[in-house]
Nucleic acid binder design. Structure first.
Lengths: 289, 289
DNA sequence: TCCTGTCATACCCGACAGGTATCACCGAGG
DNA sequence: CCTCGGTGATACCTGTCGGGTATGACAGGA
C-alpha cells in the first residue's frame, strides 16, 4: 500500500490506543485481543516511518507525530462515517434516483425556540420543501454532529460554538441576561455587569460542560435546563444566558440584563462545500426571516 | 462491520468508478482486475443498503446517493491522506519527541511576491521560528493542497479561492488593473471599467483555469504568467489582475486601474482546528505585517 | 525475591481480497 | 436474423493477512 494511504481500520485502532494510552483497554474497547492490536500499530508506524507512541513500561505516551495523527485521524474518521451516513440518508428512499428530500437539523435542546419555530414554519411553507428532522442535542454537540454526518445543518451560538470548518450565515444577535432567584438582592437591580454576578459568594455561577468538560469553579455542575431552573429557584446558583432564555423562566426567577456580556449570535451552519439543494433552500429561508 | 463504517479501500474504489463511470477503466486506474472491483462495489451497496450506481448497458450512471458519496467520499479520502502526510511530516525528524518544526506554505506561483517576501523575512526573524517550505502551485490549487495535507498553510486570494472549510485571517486588500499592450488605444485611458475591457473585439480577455476548467470565451487559454505576458505584449489579449501584478510588467505592457473590479483580498488560510504552534506563530507574524 | 501488570513475539487458522475464466446481456451492423 | 464487440456479473480458486491463543520479556512494587 502507498505510504500515505491509511485504512480506516488502522486509524480506528490508533485513535483507540491514543485515547486510552493503554493497549489492553483499547483492544477491549475495539472488541479484539491485545496482540493483533499491538502488531497493527507497529505495522502502521513502520509504514508511516515515524514513531507514534513511546512505550513506557507503565502504559504508553504519544509522540509529537502521534498527537498529530490523533487529531487529524479523528477528523478523517468523522469525515468517513459522515460520507457513509449521508449517502445512506440520500438513498434511503424507495425511488431509485433523486436524493431523498430530508434534512437533519441539530439544535441545542433549549436554545432559540422561537427562532426555530419561525424557521420551521417558514420553510415548510416553501414549495418543494424537504422534510426537516429536528435533532435535539447537548450544549456543544452540534459541531460533532455535523462533522460525523449525523446532522446536515445546525443552529449554533457564537461564541459558545465554534464555526471553524463550517459554512454559516448569521441569523440573530441577542444580549445576555443573568437569571437570579427572585428574592436575591441583585434581582432588584435594573442592570448588572459580569463582575457583579461572577463575584457573589452566596450565589456561585452555574457551570455546564464545554466540549465535554466542566470549566473549573465553585458553582454546581449543570446537565440540563430543568436542573438549572430548579437550582436557581432554590437560591443556590445564578446563570448567564442569552436573552431568549426568558421564554422558560419560572415565577421564582428574575432576569436582569447584563451590560457587558458579549452578545450571542445565532448562526445556521452546515458542512463546507455542501451541494444539497434542500439545504440551500433552508438557508435561504433562514436568512430571510 | 458496522453499517456506517467505510474502509478507505472501499471509498477509493467507489470514487474511481464514480469518476470514470466505467468499471473496466476504473479497475485499470486502480491497478486491479474488473471482477473484484464489481464485487467490492456490490458489497458496498449492500452494506449501505442503497443503490449507488445505475448500471446501463452503456457504462454506468450515479444515483442521488452515489453523487453524495462521491462528494463526501472525496473529502474523507483527502482527510485520511492528510492525516498520514501530516503525521509523517511531524515525526520525520530524528529526535523522538517534539513535533518537527516545519511548515509547508502553498502560494500561487506569481501571486503577492512582495507580501510573501516580507512574511518570510519577518517570520524567520522570530525566535524559535519553524522552517518554512514554500510550495508554489497553480492558480486554484491551494485548497486541494491544504485539504489533502500536502500543505499546512496557504496564501489565498478571495474571490478566486474559496475559504470555505478553512480558518483564515485577512492580510491585504488591493484593487485590480487591466494589463494591456502599450500601444492599444485603451492604454491611454486613466481608468477603465470591466465593461471597457470585456467588450473589445480585437482584444479578447485572457482565460485561465478555475478549478481545473477554463471558463468559456473567445480569449486565449493561459497556463502560466510568462505565456500571458507574451500574449499581451503581442497585442493578442488583455488580462485583469490584482494590483501587485505590476511587479512583473514588461516595457510593452501598460497597466490601467479598473474602477469597478471587485477588490482582491489576500488571506492566510489553514485547516480548521489546527493545533500547530508553529502555524500559530506564522499567522501571528502575518497579521502583524 | 517474587508477583503483577505491561507490551511484544510466535504460531496457527479462517476469512476474504483479488486473479482467471466465463457468462449474460444489449446495441450495432451486415 | 444472426453475429460480433463491449459491457458488467458470476463462479471458482488461491494466497495473504487479520485475528486468536499461548507465551515471553521486562520493569516496578511489596
Amino acid at each position: 500500500m502507498a505510504v500515505d494511504t491509511l485504512e480506516t481500520r488502522e486509524l480506528r485502532y490508533f485513535v483507540a490506543v491514543a485515547e486510552e494510552l493503554h493497549f489492553g483497554r483499547a483492544a477491549e474497547r475495539l472488541g479484539m485481543a491485545q496482540p493483533p492490536l499491538s502488531r497493527a500499530i507497529q505495522q502502521l508506524e513502520r509504514r508511516l516511518g515515524v514513531s507514534l507512541l513511546k512505550r513506557n513500561r507503565r502504559g504508553v505516551l504519544l509522540t509529537g507525530a502521534g498527537e498529530v495523527l490523533l487529531h487529524e485521524g479523528r477528523a478523517a474518521l468523522d469525515a468517513t462515517t459522515a460520507a457513509a451516513r449521508r449517502a445512506r440518508r440520500a438513498g434511503g428512499a424507495d425511488d431509485p434516483d433523486g436524493p431523498r428530500n430530508r434534512l437533519v437539523l441539530a439544535v441545542k435542546a433549549a436554545g432559540s425556540h422561537e427562532l426555530l419555530r419561525k424557521l420551521l414554519d417558514a420553510y415548510a411553507a416553501e414549495p418543494g420543501a424537504a422534510e426537516i428532522e429536528v435533532l435535539p442535542c447537548g450544549l456543544c454537540e452540534q459541531e460533532g454532529l455535523l462533522r460525523d454526518g449525523r446532522a446536515d445543518v445546525a443552529l449554533m451560538h457564537a461564541p459558545f460554538n465554534s464555526l471553524a470548518g463550517f459554512d454559516s450565515e448569521e441569523l440573530m444577535t441577542e444580549g445576555q441576561i443573568a437569571i437570579l432567584p427572585a428574592g436575591h438582592p441583585l434581582a432588584a437591580r435594573k442592570t448588572l455587569s459580569l463582575a457583579d454576578v461572577g463575584d457573589v459568594p452566596d450565589l456561585p455561577l452555574a457551570r455546564w460542560p464545554r466540549h465535554g468538560v466542566y470549566p473549573p469553579g465553585p458553582g454546581p455542575e449543570i446537565r440540563d435546563q430543568t436542573q438549572l431552573a430548579q437550582l436557581i429557584a432554590l437560591g443556590r446558583t445564578v446563570a448567564v444566558l442569552p436573552d431568549s432564555a426568558r421564554s422558560w423562566l419560572w415565577a421564582e426567577h428574575t432576569a436582569v440584563p447584563l451590560t457587558d456580556a458579549p452578545p450571542v449570535v445565532t448562526h445556521i451552519a452546515w458542512p463546507a462545500h455542501s451541494r444539497s439543494l434542500a439545504l440551500a433552500g433552508l438557508v435561504r429561508t433562514a436568512t430571510r426571516l
